[in-house]
Design a protein around this nucleic acid. Structure first.
Lengths: 351, 351
DNA sequence: CTGTTAGCGCATTCAG
DNA sequence: CTGAATGCGCTAACAG
């Protein structure tokens, strides 16, 4: 019976000491070869590298993190991954982290402040070097600066109440406002805003833009924040459309609301844009495939995730936690398709 | 000037020893209070807990993992998070991990075998207790059992070549086959299969189901695997529809292909299901909102992620890495809406 | 019931 | 240029 290679027979994972012994050098020399920070004789390096390969040695990042007071990982807390918007954000964050050689620890808050808090604590226990988070609910979140100590935290998509946190947002208010102005240019005067709970920062910010545009035009606002379910939305839209001051145009607060309204519109047999013009906030994958193609405010989703993560790495690198965080607001685009009444054969993008 | 609380003035994070000192006990006692595995006098426990609160002590999970040879984290490698299908999988995996008190380290392969390999190595360096992965490309993946040593790995959605890996799949072939049979029942004889690259396991498996159904019915197959872009798909569909043996029904391989075909259909002004019946593999959010609502094979996406992750935890708990992995195949459903020619007002789900 | 010792794998500090 | 000692924070094993 052939003897097992002694090397492979070792049960536990090889350590730096194993490598050093095999190469006939000290552990430090191995460490130096690995890190490359200090000069080592070519011949010694060679011996070490051979030993590493022979043992299939892999540095223990856990030990390294433990020792070095730097975990080379960041935390990412999102409400959910079911929403493609959040998933896209996550992709962007993870991509930037990878570029920096960092790992991402992912967790979801489900939009619940308590879960969010507990998960943030877990991240802290894991000694993440920093945290990127899409906060749960503005008025209810338990995330405070003191919770995190010196660990940098960047919020994005939605702000955190404590201004000490950095935050990256998009032009929610301005975007909604411009969209409404466009609808007004189409001649609409009865424009409704349909959204999810106003307690969500983005939904509210967009509403404010809607309201501003309506007021500036001397029009009466007509908004509804109960689009939490398909049923509710259908019921409401049916009512609205039946009334004698029925809206002739609608702006939805986000993709979920858009989806519900779209479904309701189909149920009710309303024709878009003839019976009702329609625009949504947040672009999505099938927006230009459905009929008619949907006019939307497009937010720079990936960009937002990238900017937030880069900002976090700035903080990590500099090691400072300023008293007042940065507030970065990214521009949105208006994508004119046909649901608003435009006749463009292909989308027109306004910056 | 009021003196800063001595406790808060400490710069570094408090350690177990700090707590022990403050409570006037040994570090082990603190450890025991925390773990709760050994009995401690109520009074002592009280003192320790007070000290913990006072110092805002948080156990260092890094040290614990390092010491305990168990990182309490699992790795998750996905091709991408842009695809809502993958994102849904990720959500399921992360949810199960959270239930078990585990962290998830997330990374993307971008469908590239080399990236996948490098990322797997990173996971190993981080000493994840296990790995859940949606592999890149069957014939090209470099993920082998020997790479991982004793670290358990579960593949899902797509298998890995090495049968030593556990894998969780859905009924790709049977699902496609039944869908085609349904199309045949509608009287179609020229049914086309349109898909992405056949090198992808799922796309190929579904094609096999399509082919089987066609052959069993004595029909001629007509398939195309170039739906990698909107342009390609449009060009191809236009050609196909122009030909004298133009298909009267189409089955698409997945949501991306469905999207491209949908867009092409809109461009070409083809009416569904009158001019062309249409069914897709994989349900998606707007499938029942578009017009006509789309008939699809629905796969149990979340369930697949959950099952895979639970299987992984089984392996982790048992500490065994069997020579032959399990192969779990989850059932799919046929969701009959209207694009196939059915008249149902609401979807009919066939199990 | 509680304290002491020791060591997980690595890299900083200090010698040689 | 290289090696030895030391300790990061925690917990198993052993004493007391």
């Amino acid at each position: 019976m052939k003897q097992q290679n002694r090397v492979a027979a070792v049960d536990r994972k090889p350590t730096m000491n194993d490598v050093a012994r095999l190469a006939g050098v000290g552990a430090m020399t191995v460490s130096r070869v690995l890190s490359g920070t200090v000069r080592v004789t070519a011949e010694t390096r060679q011996r070490v590298e051979t030993a590493i390969k022979q043992l299939k040695y892999r540095p223990n990042e856990l030990a390294r993190a433990f020792r070095g007071q730097r975990s080379h990982s960041i935390g990412l807390i999102l409400p959910s991954l079911y929403d493609p918007f959040f998933a896209t954000c996550a992709h962007a964050v993870a991509t930037v982290a990878k570029e920096r050689g960092y790992s991402v620890i992912l967790t979801m808050s489900n939009g619940d402040p308590d879960t969010e808090y507990v998960e943030a604590e877990h991240m802290l226990e894991r000694h993440v070097d920093g945290l990127v988070v899409i906060p749960s609910i503005f008025r209810q979140t338990r995330l405070t600066r003191s919770l995190f100590g010196r660990t940098p935290v960047v919020a994005f998509d939605r702000p955190l109440p404590d201004p000490a946190f950095d935050v990256v947002l998009v032009q929610n208010t301005a975007g909604a406002r411009r969209m409404v102005e466009h609808l007004i240019e189409h001649g609409h005067e009865r424009i409704a805003y349909m959204g999810l709970a106003r307690s969500l920062f983005t939904i509210n910010a967009r509403f404010l833009g809607y309201r501003r545009a309506m007021r500036d035009a001397g029009l009466k606002e007509d908004s509804f924040f109960g689009c939490e379910s398909e049923e509710n939305t259908l019921r409401l839209l049916a009512e609205k459309l039946k009334g004698k001051n029925a809206p002739t145009a609608i702006l939805t607060s986000n993709t979920l609301a858009t989806r519900y309204v779209l479904s309701s519109i189909a149920h009710l047999g309303v024709r878009v844009p003839n019976d009702l013009a329609f625009a949504g906030f947040d672009d999505f994958d099938l927006a230009d495939v459905i009929s008619p193609p949907l006019t939307v405010v497009r937010q720079p989703t990936q960009e937002m995730g990238r900017v937030a993560t880069n900002l976090l790495f700035d903080r990590i690198t500099r090691g400072e936690t300023p008293h007042l965080g940065s507030r970065i607001v990214l521009p949105v685009e208006i994508v004119l398709r046909r649901s608003c009444g435009c006749k463009h054969r292909t989308p027109v993008v306004i910056h």
